[in-house]
């Protein structure tokens, strides 16, 4: 039994989710593969979006995977860090914009 919740080796086993539900697993991987193909957005742009989202959803597997993917695509560390900040800015903005709700409620309840 593994001693921690996250194990780097588990990323290699991701494809095994198909073992317990072949149909859904395969559908997912096919969809996933199509999403990341070169389209209206380049594979490079998609990789940076994925890296930003990986941080926002705080998935260590995704962070490992898209850091490596970025390196393979020649993406620089400056580009990667900017992408992470975009994710962080949206995430903190999403928190802070709720401050308006707090202010509204405060005003409503105060005499």
């Amino acid at each position: 039994m593994s001693k921690t919740y996250y194990n780097t080796e588990d990323l290699r086993k991701f494809k095994n989710i198909t073992d317990w539900s072949e149909e859904l697993g395969e559908k997912f991987f096919e969809y996933y593969g199509s999403v990341f193909k070169e389209g209206a957005l380049t594979a490079r742009e998609k990789s940076l979006i994925a890296l930003a989202v990986s941080h926002v959803v705080k998935c260590p597997y995704c962070i490992d995977a898209y850091t490596k993917d970025g390196l393979q695509k020649g993406i620089t560390k400056e580009e990667m860090m900017e992408a992470v900040h975009v994710g962080a800015a949206i995430e903190s903005g999403a928190t802070l914009v709720h401050g308006v709700q707090m202010m509204n409620k405060y005003e409503k309840l105060s005499m």
């Binding site: 070169e38 594979a43 490079r44 390196l71 393979q72 695509k73 020649g74």
Partner: peptide
């Protein structure tokens, strides 16, 4: 580093 080269054509365009 310890990663594979990405797509050769895409890398050529970037270079």
């Amino acid at each position: 580093g310890a990663f594979l080269p990405g797509d050769q054509t895409a890398l050529e365009i970037e270079f």
